[in-house]
Amino acid sequence: MKLLTHNMLTSKFMKGVVKGYPLGIVASEVKEVAVDYNPDFVCRMIPKLEWGSLCSAADSIGKLGDLPKELPENIESNQDFLKKVHHLLMEVEVISGNLICPETGRKFPINNGIPNMLLNEDEV
């Protein structure tokens, strides 16, 4: 699971959960893969991100580096910054671990990089 995807996921679909966001990450295996850098795509994704959640997610798996806690201005021309965001969004992958609902503590396991967001029949 990439951090880009993580930024878009919630557990709001669970009964009684109000926001379900952001999901916590407890990773047991994290991998870095090389993905072609595409500044246009990164620029398209940035407005769709919850910046604070990206920072805390990156931090929780030890990949925050020197990413600014506030989204800087004029990012389009800031290649240095875009490359960092590209790396975080596209190249860092949680291979195994759990996503955790912030309200209920319900764990959603990640195996082989694929999160399992299914509930059980007694939860729906």
């Binding site: 878009m8 996921l9 557990s11 679909f13 966001y21 072609d36 990089g113 399992n116």
Partner: peptide, 22 residues
């Protein structure tokens, strides 16, 4: 492969995405 983001195991009747025009 550079276009691959993720696939997730989910039931479509339970929406897992944060609501926004994504």
């Amino acid at each position: 492969e550079h276009c691959y983001l993720d696939v997730m195991q989910a039931d479509f009747s339970k929406c897992i995405w944060r609501e926004q025009p994504l």
